[in-house]
Write a protein that binds this DNA or RNA. Sequence first.
RNA 1: GGCGCGUUGGUCAAUCGGCUAAGACGCCUCCCUUUCACGGAGGAAUGACGGGUUCGACUCCCGUACGUGCUACCA
Length: 505
Amino acid sequence: MKVRVRFAPSPTGGLHLGGVRTVLYNYLFARANGGDFVLRVEDTDQNRFVAGAEQYIMDCLNWCGLIPDESPEKGGPYAPYRQSERKHLYADYAEQLIASGHAYYAFDTTEDLEKMRKDYRRDDNTNPQYDHNIRGLMLNSLTLPPEKVAELVQNGTPYVVRIKMPANETVMLTDMIRGEISFDSSLVDDKVLLKADGMPTYHLAVVVDDYLMKITHAFRGEEWLPSAPVHVLLWEYLGWKQHMPQWAHLPLILKPDGNGKLSKRDGDRLGFPVFAMNWTAPRTSETTKGFREMGFLPEAFVNMLAMLGWNSGSEQEIFSLDELVERFSIERVHKGGAKFDFEKAKWFNHQYIQRTDDATLAELAKPYIDMELGIGNWELGLLSKVVPLVKDRCTLLPDFWAQGHFFFTTPEIKEEAAIKEKWNDQKQQFFTSWINILTAQPTWDHAVIEATFNEELPKNGLKKGDVILPFRIMLVGGKYGPGVFVIAEVIGKDETIKRIKRVIG
RNA sequence: GGCGCGUUGGUCAAUCGGCUAAGACGCCUCCCUUUCACGGAGGAAUGACGGGUUCGACUCCCGUACGUGCUACCA
């Protein structure tokens, strides 16, 4: 049987780190097993629908290079891939469940449900559920005579369909990551399967669509584990038990400080991205930063995510996507959640920058230089000289500007104190006469510049250490950067002399 | 409250009964570099707790604690 996996997001906002990791594991598993990877949009909640979110999700997958084989955009043999467009399919299955006695109509209003939760709340049961103990007390096709039910349905009274959870059964589930898990069916509530608006809930839709789309392995977040028995029973009640996919409940990605699931808020609070790419909420126009815009390379982002919850068992940490396909195994995925570490994420990006060829880096860095200087306002050829000089100091793409800005424009002197404090006549004299020597130089390369620099030192009773730092600050503005004579070579004779004069007057 | 899941350094983690418990990030020291990085050499830092099982337990079992997830006509 052909392996088929699916990523099933609901289009409600930005794509979270954890979501991308779920996509990745799906993708790796599909590729490794010669299977299909499908993107199915779970837009069954009309209240939470956010315009543009679906397109955004696909853009994120594109950026990461995790392209689905079948999707709403691309189509495929099991189209449509949007649950809202599959709405008509679900009611029949709900009816089938009612007919076989595994589900029932419920006519309780929101107020009825609130009242029930209030009335039955006790200290040892702070959250009463609509379950096998309670359903006999509610307004549904189990408590109402058949004629009454038929009448209510016919005259358009809103109703939902609920699963009838059995009492005292042990529901078993074999998880690829966690092994055997069991639940007591008495403790699981009668989940709504079909909502009053005719849309299925996740519980029904996921089972029906996984069946119809012939999904063989289902990866999802650990937060779904408690509702897994509902899904297992649905597979059984619908008569599809032998087709049920193998489950893998992935560990959560936790916030770096304290505990709990990593949320968008944590990123805002601690200054790192949580979404793959910038996301602007259409309603509020509020933008949340993404890894892409912060200057991550998609390969580094994906590699980092792969290692958050999985490792190969070897000491290797840097893997290309192809290597991951080859090495990844779901059995080696951790059970416990992992705290997200932004420092480690940056380290991955630094590694990838060092391994990327200079021409590609120049392409990647270009937009950030454009952002500072304006498109077309600077010499593109200069960037290819700068990239190899500053790349080891760059962790994120904007660092190419931070580390190399002085190649493009005359920098502001930020370390003036370091020059002024120990300034004296000898130094003044040194630079004054050195400028004249430089001006007369027919060739301009770092070796020549350094040679003249060295020759001029003793004439003024100076050592290299006395003036090399001041010279650096003249050119760079601060105490950082590549070899100072190389910088002088790259910015050119006129600019070098200009920058020295600017300081010595 | 109930139920599920989890628990090796600050963080990510190896180990599938033999451990003097890898490696990476971060941190610290030193070297390299008359800058900052890169690179190199070191260092501090770990099995939640209590019982079993076993010649031997980080590894297996039980309990406790702690954490976390769910407990919606949201996914």
